[in-house]
Simulated assay, not measured.
Amino acid sequence: MSQRLYPSRPIVGVGGVIVDGERLVLIKRKYEPLANRWSIPGGTLEVGESLEDGVARELFEETGLVVRVGPVIEVFDRILRDEDGRVKYHFVLVDYLCLPVGGTLQAGDDVSEAEWARFDGLAPYALTDKASSVIARARQLPLDW
Score class of each variant (00 low, 15 high):
Val19Glu: 15
Glu62Cys: 00
Ile73Met: 03
Pro10Ser: 12
Gly48Pro: 14
Ser8Thr: 15
Leu99Phe: 09
Pro100Val: 09
Ile27Gln: 08
Glu32Thr: 11
His90Phe: 02
Lys30Cys: 03
Asn36Glu: 15
Leu99Ser: 15
Asn36Thr: 10
Gly21Pro: 15
Val67Glu: 09
Ala56Pro: 12
Gly13Asn: 14
Ser50Pro: 15
Cys98Ile: 02
Asp20Met: 01
Glu61Phe: 00
Asp82Lys: 15
Gly43Arg: 08
Val55Trp: 05
Gly70Met: 01
Gly103Val: 09
Arg68Ala: 05
Leu26Phe: 05
Pro100Cys: 12
Phe91Asn: 14
Gly54Lys: 02
Ile11Arg: 09
Val12Met: 11
Ile11Trp: 02
Gly70Trp: 07
Val94Thr: 15
Arg86Tyr: 03
Glu52Pro: 01
Gly15Phe: 06
Glu62Met: 02
Gly42Met: 09
Val75Glu: 13
Leu34Asp: 13
Glu74Tyr: 04
Gly42Asp: 06
Arg57Glu: 12
Leu65Cys: 06
Tyr89Leu: 03
Gly43Val: 04
Gly85Met: 01
Ser50Tyr: 03
Phe91Thr: 14
Gly54Met: 00
Arg9Tyr: 07
Asp95Arg: 05
Lys30Tyr: 07
Val87Pro: 13
Leu97Phe: 00
Leu97Gln: 14
Ile73Ala: 07
Asp77Asn: 06
Glu61Val: 07
Asp20Phe: 02
Val47Thr: 08
Glu22Ile: 06
Ile40Phe: 00
Ile40Tyr: 04
Gly15Thr: 01
Leu24Asp: 08
Ile18Leu: 03
Lys88Trp: 08
Leu99Pro: 05
Leu93Phe: 04
Lys88Ser: 11
Gly64Tyr: 02
Leu45Asn: 02
Pro71Met: 01
Thr44Glu: 02
Glu74Asn: 14
Phe60Gln: 10
Ala56Lys: 13
Gly48Arg: 05
Gln106Leu: 12
His90Ser: 13
Leu24Met: 10
Gly15Arg: 14
Val101Ala: 02
Gly102Cys: 14
Val69Thr: 10
Asp84Tyr: 01
Asp82Ala: 10
Arg81Tyr: 02
Tyr96Ile: 03
Pro71Asn: 10
Pro7Lys: 13
Pro33Asn: 07
Arg29Gln: 11
Arg23Cys: 01
Glu58Gln: 08
Pro33Gly: 12
Leu24Arg: 08
Gly42Ala: 07
Glu83Asp: 14
Leu26Val: 12
Leu105Val: 10
Phe60Glu: 11
Arg81Gln: 13
Val47Met: 02
Gly15Glu: 03
Ile79Gly: 03
Tyr96Ser: 13
Leu45Gly: 02
Glu32Met: 11
Ala56Cys: 09
Leu99Asn: 14
Asp84Trp: 01
Asp82Arg: 10
Gly85Asn: 13
Leu105Phe: 03
Pro71Gln: 07
Val75Gln: 08
His90Tyr: 06
Glu62Trp: 04
Arg86Ile: 04
Gly85His: 11
Tyr89Ser: 13
Val67Gly: 06
Gly102Glu: 05
Thr104His: 05
Gly103His: 01
Ile40Ala: 09
Pro10Arg: 15
Glu62Arg: 00
Ala56Arg: 15
Leu59Lys: 01
Cys98Asn: 15
Leu80Trp: 05
Glu83Lys: 05
Gly13Thr: 12
Gly48Ala: 12
Gly13Pro: 00
Gly43Leu: 04
Leu93Ile: 09
